[in-house]
Amino acid sequence: MRNYQPATLKKNVRLASKFAYWLDCELSEMTSANVEDYLIHLHQQGRSAKTIKNHRSAIKVFCDFLGTRGILQDNPVLRVPSMELPEEIPIFLTDEEVDKLMVIARLDDMFCEVTLALNTGLRMEEMRRLEWRDIDLKFKQLTVRKSKSKRPRTVPLNQRTCKALETQRERYGHLVYVFPGGKGGFYNRGIWTEPKMRSENWWQKLSIRHIQEVIPSLKNLPAGRTGRGWHDLRHTF
């Protein structure tokens, strides 16, 4: 469990809790039939194959945990086949959409964030954790100290990204994080002033609805999900 990213762990707990609430027997009496019935229940509710697969994965992790506590002898999820998902073609932005996005990014005081995502492919969590000590503008590179693979990596920076970071440093170089917390954004421009990491859902709260209004390819993305749309910037990179 300790190897999961905080957001992934939180999601697994949430999905496993829903299953435990639905379950009509003691956890120690759980069988593969219970798990399969629950997944069928989700399918009947109209949940997508990807959502059902996420639930199965969360329940599997939950059952592994129950096994370490001696509540289950074996993991019943292992006897429930996983759904095969069709390979999805990543969404990426056209040059015209990128231009529109940059206009919105300036209005919403997110120019550096969006520039970095488009030109480096950093994940949402990696950007949140980025500190000024990780930025080396002299050698035009940054270091991701904690990545999804658990290994640090060095990312080259182009001239456009360096310029955006220079402007960002003029404003927030006295703080630890490159993108600090606070109440910044469209309605409180320039007030990212708290010396702590930015919240997980800052992207959702600030601009996702605004961006969806002018970029058609992002309109089908649910605004209530943290990070949705941000991966499309990575794919564009």
Rank of each mutant, 00 (worst) to 15 (best):
R106K: 13
F65L: 12
E131W: 01
L85I: 12
L66N: 04
G70I: 02
K100I: 00
L116N: 01
A117N: 06
Q73P: 00
T161L: 02
G173L: 03
F92D: 08
C162T: 09
V144Y: 07
R133C: 05
M110W: 02
D109H: 02
L85Q: 04
L165E: 09
H43D: 15
K150E: 12
G46C: 08
C112V: 09
E84S: 13
D64W: 00
G46V: 09
E96I: 11
A164S: 14
T51R: 11
E96K: 12
S82I: 03
H55V: 06
D134V: 05
L78C: 03
A164N: 06
E113N: 02
P81D: 12
L72K: 01
F65T: 11
A58Q: 11
D134Y: 02
T51P: 11
S48G: 11
Q45V: 06
K140Q: 14
M110C: 14
K100C: 00
P90K: 06
H43S: 15
E96L: 11
W132V: 02
T143G: 02
L116H: 01
C63D: 08
P152D: 10
H43R: 14
L137I: 08
D109S: 10
H55T: 05
E166D: 08
K148A: 01
E88K: 15
L42V: 06
I71G: 01
H55L: 01
F92T: 07
Q168W: 07
I89S: 13
K163W: 01
R128I: 14
E87P: 00
H174W: 09
L130W: 03
P81T: 06
K146H: 09
R79T: 12
D108I: 00
E125L: 07
M110H: 04
T143Q: 12
Q159K: 10
D74M: 04
K60S: 15
H55C: 10
V77A: 11
D134S: 11
V98M: 05
L101F: 04
I71K: 05
I59A: 09
T154S: 13
E113M: 09
Q168S: 12
N119Y: 13
A58Y: 10
T154Q: 14
D64E: 15
I104T: 10
E88I: 11
D136F: 03
M110D: 04
T68A: 00
C162N: 04
L107E: 14
N54L: 13
Q44V: 06
P156R: 12
H43A: 15
